[in-house]
Structure formats: structure tokens, C-alpha cells
Design a protein around this nucleic acid. Sequence first.
DNA 1: AAAATATGCGGTAACGTTACCGCAAACTAA
DNA 2: TTAGTTTGCGGTAACGTTACCGCATATTTT
Lengths: 344, 344
Amino acid sequence: MVKRITIKEIARKADVSIGTVDRVLHNRGRVAEATREKVLKIAKEGNYSSNVMARHLKLNKTYRISVILPEENNYWLMLKEGIEDGCAEFGQMGFTAGYCFVANDGSQAMQLNRILNTDADGFIIAPSAFHQQTDLLSKLREKGKPYVFVDSNIIDGGQLTFIGQDSYRSGVLGACLLHDKYLSDYEIYITTFSESDIKEQIIKNRIEGFRSYFDENQISHVNIHEVNLEKDQMNADDFLNVLLKHENPVHLFIPNSKTYKLTEQLIQFKETNQLRVVGYDLLQSNLRLLNGGAIDYLIHQKPKMQGYLGMQSLYKNIVLKTDVPLHQYMPLDIINKENVMYCQ
Amino acid sequence: MVKRITIKEIARKADVSIGTVDRVLHNRGRVAEATREKVLKIAKEGNYSSNVMARHLKLNKTYRISVILPEENNYWLMLKEGIEDGCAEFGQMGFTAGYCFVANDGSQAMQLNRILNTDADGFIIAPSAFHQQTDLLSKLREKGKPYVFVDSNIIDGGQLTFIGQDSYRSGVLGACLLHDKYLSDYEIYITTFSESDIKEQIIKNRIEGFRSYFDENQISHVNIHEVNLEKDQMNADDFLNVLLKHENPVHLFIPNSKTYKLTEQLIQFKETNQLRVVGYDLLQSNLRLLNGGAIDYLIHQKPKMQGYLGMQSLYKNIVLKTDVPLHQYMPLDIINKENVMYCQ
DNA sequence: AAAATATGCGGTAACGTTACCGCAAACTAA
DNA sequence: TTAGTTTGCGGTAACGTTACCGCATATTTT
């Protein structure tokens, strides 16, 4: 690599002072047009880009990132871990994060408003924390500060970037993991729990993707059922009984992290039946079931990586002033008993 | 985050000059013991760590990393891509990389010697590039420069860190992907090509891990065969014929990236037989077979990530002077047709 | 006792950048 | 013409760190 050109060298070559070069490069006016062009030409030829470290040393600024997440459960805490990693890495550049877990109750709107009014330099937001309050988006836009969405996306939401999985494709993957072409007729239950589950776009997408796999591959020896325990007024034991009635093998697809809600029932069922189970997210409770053999595959959304990439994207935007892609899709990680020990 | 303490503040609190503080912190002597202790105490209380950016600005050093890889094929070029990513990220800190692909011929030892004698500040080495020349290790150690191993490891080789998969566990994972408990008797062929393949430690480990899965889980409805085409004097067509003779379903485990060598034969066989194929590495030729359905799973070693982490580790060691773990195991990524589009 | 060396410390330039201040010269308004 | 304003530019402090230089004392060697 050739040595980088500095403003001092540009100044020397253009036969002006570094003050003038600085005024040109930052469009601060008070420069004759001829001088301006001469400086820009030399800067371009020398492929000038400012030394980020020297700039930061001079400015000596700190940047505060506000993180807005739905609730303080294990999943979001994993995302938080990734953000902490980012703080450690970019802390040298003055990056710090403040967290807010938004309860889904009456005080919600007030809480969100308070956070949005803090003078943060950037935001990391899980849109599901907004619940239905879409008017908050325009407030964010007005501030002119960068914000990134993690986990789920809002199309044309003015975000700097979206970091998360393609939920439709992750559903397709789930289907593929439950597809067994060497098995004759079998049943698949797409299982959700609370009624709010099936209102989430991300869940809808997963289910849609899941179904599309069997449609598009014209797989007919599989019977797909959809169950929502709350809506269908069943508890876990009721559900187990439904499953036990089938003579065919039964597979389960649980399109969110709540697989663990069936713990007892899964263990009971697995002992006697041909059953394959695919769920989401590496919560402790899910990992226990995976290691115990009750869950076969977990699709890993890499929340920690999402958090880290969120910080990294803001760093790139705010400090380096480089472009960040609008979509940063997470890999669709397949985790089973045999590779869980090395998954990140 | 509280504002970081600077040497200037330490100097003020200790009532000495910053020159003295610097001499204490860098053990450059010429300081009275009492002063030394006073300064160290204040630095410790203030949790001092030097500002990496200011240090780098002052030193204005560049660091040259020599990368030693076996040959310029697609796999190693992916690793190189990751190193380039690292250069882009740490280039601000003066990091650059120079590459050497070591041919496996007579000039090899000379080539390696030449590289090791360059005044690089650190090395990224794929130990398989050393072939049997283990005496080169001691040369490296003498230089006192940090070096990291990627892809495969040498135990107690004096490396800063190893970055790669646990090859034994990746074999176990391969076995798990080929295990079908709902299938009655079937055959599995562990397939290698050249005789040098089975001399590699990494391949041996994978095969050992693969076999251990069936042993430890006491799976007896599977017949495992091992074939090396060169040693067994077969070409790909001969091998296909061997496979076709079986009445049972046949699965294949190819413990390195050479799955593509069976292209025609795989496609032919897949049309008529129940066959599952697990291979390694996302080479273009393997990806075509994966997308075409001839390969079911590829275990992804994330060479690009390995390259990036190699640079990152050297950066941490040389610039940040922080610790780096001795082992950095890559995830055992399972790639199939449905998640390959988002894999990294 | 004089000369040479060692010890302890303060001071400062430089790294590349930014955001000022201020000085001339040119121009405009009275 | 004189006073005020604008334009174009040079100069510099500061960010935190490092590696020097050099000056006094203190200590050792002739």
C-alpha cells in the first residue's frame, strides 16, 4: 500500500496553507474558485481520504447510541451482548450505548417518546418494540439521526439499514428440515401459542415460507396443520393428545422461540413416536431440549451478531461516513446437537 | 461511560511531568522508585489505558503481514478475501498484507525460507503449506514475530492463535447429517481421491469423528465403507459402478472439498437412487452441485471469516496489545440448497 | 579535588486533523 | 475620500501519545 496523502502534502502541492485545504475539503467557503479546483484536483489525484484517527483525536467527541428493545428476556439480552461487543470495539472512538426495554403496557407510548427525545447520536431499534405505534417513525425521521432496525424490518422506514433474517426464507428452510422424501405420509403441525404470535409479520412470513416449500416442490405426502393454542383453546397437554391420535409420524414446526413451552409434552412424545421438531432461537430452555434430543433443529437468528452489526453500521455511518447496505441479512444458521457447541 | 484518564491528568495528579509518566508507563527507567509507585497508583486508580489512536498517530507505523497459503485455488482465495476485508478495516492502522502461494514442488523450501526472512511484522499461515517441513517452525519462533495458523493446526507450534474448525467434530456433524434412523439398512462410503488426501491430519480427524458417531450411538443398520480412488485404483466411473451394485440405499461422505470430482457420476446416480451426499466447502463447482440437488449438505469452513479473524487477531496482538484466545473455532456451518443464498 | 558518569526529572516536537483568529487586499457604501 | 464590509488566505492551538534532548543534582571514578 502506498502511503496515504495528507492535507499537509496537498497544501504543499497546491502551494496554499493547510487552512485553505481544510476549507475546501469541508466546503466552508472563503476560497477562490481557482484555488478550490486546484486543491480538489490534487486531493482527487492523491486519492485523499481523511485520517479517521487524527480526526477523532481532534474532535474528541463521544457518541451515544440509544437501544430500544421490546422486553428484557433472554433473546434480547443476547442481542444486547453483541451491542456490548461493539461498545468494546468502538469504545475507543467514543461509542457508548444506553438501553431501554419497552414494556408492552399503558406507559409504552410515553416511554418511547421519552427515549426518542434524548439527544442520542443514533438508535438501534427492534421494530416490534414499537408495537402498533407507527407514528413514532416520523418522529425518528425528523430528528435526522441514523437508526437501524434489528430482528424485524419496516419497509421504507427511513432506516440506515436492516439487520436480521429473511423470515420468509427461514420458513422455507424450516420446511426443508422437516421434509423427508423417504418417509410415506406424515403430519406436520405449525404450532403457535398466544394470539399475538400470529399477528407478528415475522411469524406470518415464516409460515408462508414454510408452506411455499411444500407447494412449490409439489410434495403431497405431507399433511400440514396449523394450531394456535390460545385461539384454539388448548393447553399443552390437549395438544399432545391431538398429536398422539395420529397413526402417521408427526413433525412440528414452531415458528418462534417458544418451543420450550412444550417441554414436558415434547419429551413424553419423543419417547414413543417418530417425531422431528424444528424451532427457533438458542434460548437456554431450547438448548436443553436440543441437547436432550427433544428438539432436532433450531434456526439461529444470531441475535448477538445482529447487535454487533448494529453498532458497526452506526460506527461506519457516523464516524467513517461510509455507506452501509440497506439490508444486512443474517445467515440462516442450522443448529443441531452436533454443532451447537461451536455456534456463535 | 466515564471519560478516560490521560497521561496529562496522571501527570497533574502525581505532580510530575508527562515525560515522567511516560517513562513509568513504558518502563524506560530514570525514575525514582517513589515517583514510579505514585504514578502507577494513580494510573491504576484511573483505570488508565493508552489511547490507541493517539499512539498510532504519533508512531505512524505500518505493519506488514505475510500470508502463506498452499496454492492459489478457490478455497484459499476465499480466505484471502477475508484478509482483504481485514486490510480494509485495519488499513487505517497501517495494516497491509502480502501473499505467497507455496507450490508443492522442489522450490518449496527455498520459497518458504525467503518469505520467513522478509521483515514482516506478523504472519498468517496455513500449516498445510509447510508440507512436511516442520523445521521451519523453529525459524518462525526465533523471529519473535506473532503468527497465526488458519485452517489446520499444529499443537504447541508457538502460534498466537489457531483459527479453524474442530475437524473431529465436523466429522461427527457429517455423520449426523447422514444418519437416518427411519431408514432400514443402508451403506455409507467415505470417499477420498488422491493418496495425499488421507495423509492430511485434518482428513484423518474428520473420518475418525465420522466413524465415532455411529460407534458411540451404537447404530448398527449402517455399513460404512472407506474408498480412496487412487489407492484402490478406481476412476470415478468405476466407483459409480461399485455404488450401483448395492441394493440398499447408499450415502456418501466426502471429507474434503473435492466432491465436485464426482460431478457426472453424482448426477447420474441421484436420478435413480436414494442417496444423500455430504461434502465440504463452498467452491463454485460444489455450489453448482448443491443447487442442482446432487449434493445435499456442504459443511462450510468459513474460510473468509478465518482470513478476517487472522488479521483481527494480529491487530489485537500488535496494535491493541490485548490477549487473543489460543483457539478460535469456526462454527460448523450446515449449508444446503435453502440457506446457501444467505451464507457468509 | 577535579573530572566523569549516573540519576531524576521537565520540556517539547511531531503525528493529521479541525476550528478557529486575524490580516491584508478588494470591494461597497457613506 | 473615508469608513465599513467582504473575500481570500495564512497561521496556530489542541486532541493524547511517544521519543527524544537537556538540565540540574547526585554519585562514582580518576
